[in-house]
Design a protein around this nucleic acid. Structure first.
Lengths: 248, 248
DNA sequence: CGTCTGTTTGATCCTTTTCAATGCGTGTGG
DNA sequence: CCACACGCATTGAAAAGGATCAAACAGACG
C-alpha cells in the first residue's frame, strides 16, 4: 500500500477494484481534506433534518438507521472506514436516514459540488462510485432476503459474519475473532429482533459450538455453517469490472 | 411530453428530475435502440448465472428476486417502465439476483460499454444515474425497515401503496384504483409473509374499509391510514438536486 | 458505594406459519 | 360439450417462533 494511497480512505477501497492513477488519487485526496472528530454516540445526521453534506468515514464504526412511528428503530447499515456516507441525504429536503457514531470516529466532510466536479473531471471515478453504490445495493438486498426469509439464529449469524468481513477489510490482522462493538439491542435493531431474543440466539450459537464469546469478543468457530444457514456472501469479493472508462 | 422524449423510457424518468438537453436525449435513445419481447413468466436473468448485459424496461412489469437454500424466495423489487435493470449483475461473475417478467414486457438490452461511454461523454447523465440509484437505494432501505419492524398488515398495505405509486408514474390516469398483477404468493414473497397470511391481511384491510377488491382490482379507500401504519413515503417525490454538473 | 447500562433468564402471550381441505375459474383434450 | 386438471384464493385448526413482561445479575464509572 503506497503512501499516496493511504492519504485517502476512499481511494484505498477503490484500489481494491482497480489501479488508480496519480491524478485520480490526487482528486480523491481533496474529498478528505477536512477532518471532523465524532465521539461515540454522536449523531452526525438526524432523520428528516436537512444536512446536505457528504462524508467519507476515515476511522471508527458508524451506523445508519431509521426510526418508526411506534418508536422502534431499524438499523440499515453499519459503516466502516472508506465508506462514502450521506449520499441519500442530498437528494431530499430531509435526510431519509440518521447517521450515528458507534465508536469514536473521524469523518471527512465534503461538499456536493466536490462530488459533481469529480464526476466531470474523472469519469472513471464516477463509474467506480457507481460500482461501489451497487455493491452496497447488493448488500442491502442480501439483508432484505435475510429479514424476509431467514430465522432469528441465521440472521444473527449472518450479521456476525458480515461484521467480521467488514472489519477485516480495514484490519487484515482480524481472522475469525473480533470485538463486537455493538449492544445486543443494536444487533436486534439490525436484524429485526428484540434484544432478548438476540441474547438467546447468541447463546444458542455458542452452545452449538458455532461461536465463542468472551466479554464482547466473538470468535467464529464454524463459518461454513453460519454462512450456509443465512445465505451469506461477502459482496466485496469477486468483483469483476473490465468495462470501466479509461482513467484521466 | 415531447416526442423526442418518449423515444426513451429512461429519458422520461430523468426528465422528471431535470430538463434534458437534446444531446443527452440523443445519447439516451441509443441505449434503447434494440428491443426484446418477453412473455409473462419469462426469466430474463437467472440467479448466479452470468449475463453481463444491461436493460431498460420499456413496457410491462418485472421483478427481481433471490432464491434461498430452503427453496423460499425473496422478491427484492418490482420493476416498471423506465427502470434500468441488470446493473448489479455486471459486477459479479454470477448475477446476485434473478429477473423475471410479471406481464408481457419489452426490454431494451444494451452493452456495458454503452454505459461506460455515457458516463464519459455525459457527466450530468452519470450524475443522474447515480441519483436514480440512490432513490432506488432509499426505497430498498424503506423496505428493509418494513420487513424488520412492521406488522404483516402494515407491510401488505405499504406494498399496495408502492405499487399504486409506481404504476401511476407511468400511467397518470391511475388514481387510487389499479389492477394488482400479482398473486398473493408473490405479495408474500415481497413482504416476507406466507400467501395464506397475505390473504388474511388483505381481507382484514378490506373488512376495515381500508381497501376494496374486485377480482384482482384493488381500490385504496384510506391511503393515510395505510401510509402511516407502514411509514410509507413515495421516494420518487420531493427530489431536490441543484448540484448537478452542467449538461453537454 | 450506588447508579447506570447492558446481559441473562423465566413465564406467558401473540402473531405468523404450517398443514390440510375446499372452492373457484380457466383452459384443454376427449 | 363435458370431464378433468391446474393454478390460485379462501378458510380452519394446530404448532411454532418471537415478542413481551418482569426480574435478577454483572461490570463500569463517578
Amino acid at each position: 500500500m503506497t503512501l499516496s494511497r493511504s492519504a485517502s480512505c476512499f481511494a484505498e477501497i477503490l484500489s481494491d477494484l482497480v489501479e488508480l492513477t496519480d491524478n485520480e488519487i490526487q482528486a480523491l485526496k481533496q474529498l478528505e481534506a477536512r477532518e471532523r472528530n465524532l465521539r461515540r454516540g454522536a449523531v452526525l445526521q438526524r432523520e428528516n433534518e436537512p444536512d446536505h453534506e457528504l462524508y467519507i468515514l476515515r476511522r471508527g464504526m458508524m451506523m445508519s438507521y431509521v426510526l418508526l412511528e411506534d418508536g422502534s428503530r431499524q438499523i440499515l447499515r453499519f459503516l466502516f472506514p472508506g465508506d462514502m456516507i450521506g449520499l441519500p441525504g442530498i437528494l431530499y429536503r430531509g435526510s431519509p436516514e440518521a447517521l450515528c457514531a458507534l465508536s469514536d470516529c473521524v469523518v471527512c466532510p465534503f461538499d456536493r459540488s466536490a462530488l459533481s466536479n469529480l464526476i466531470v473531471q474523472h469519469p472513471r471515478l464516477a463509474a467506480l462510485i457507481l460500482v461501489v453504490n451497487q455493491i452496497e445495493r447488493v448488500s442491502l438486498t442480501d439483508r432484505l432476503a435475510m429479514l424476509g426469509r431467514t430465522t432469528a439464529k441465521a440472521r444473527v449469524g449472518a450479521l456476525l459474519l458480515e461484521l467480521r468481513d467488514r472489519l477485516r477489510a480495514t484490519d487484515k490482522s482480524i481472522d475469525n475473532s473480533f470485538t463486537l462493538g455493538l449492544t445486543q439491542e443494536e444487533i436486534g435493531d439490525a436484524t429485526g429482533l428484540t434484544s432478548v431474543h438476540v441474547n438467546r440466539m447468541l447463546r444458542q450459537l455458542e452452545q452449538e459450538g458455532s461461536i465463542a464469546r468472551v466479554n464482547g469478543h466473538v470468535t467464529l468457530l464454524d463459518e461454513s455453517v453460519l454462512a450456509r444457514s443465512a445465505n451469506y456472501v461477502n459482496r466485496f469479493e469477486g468483483i469483476e469490472i473490465d468495462w470501466l472508462p479509461v482513467p484521466r
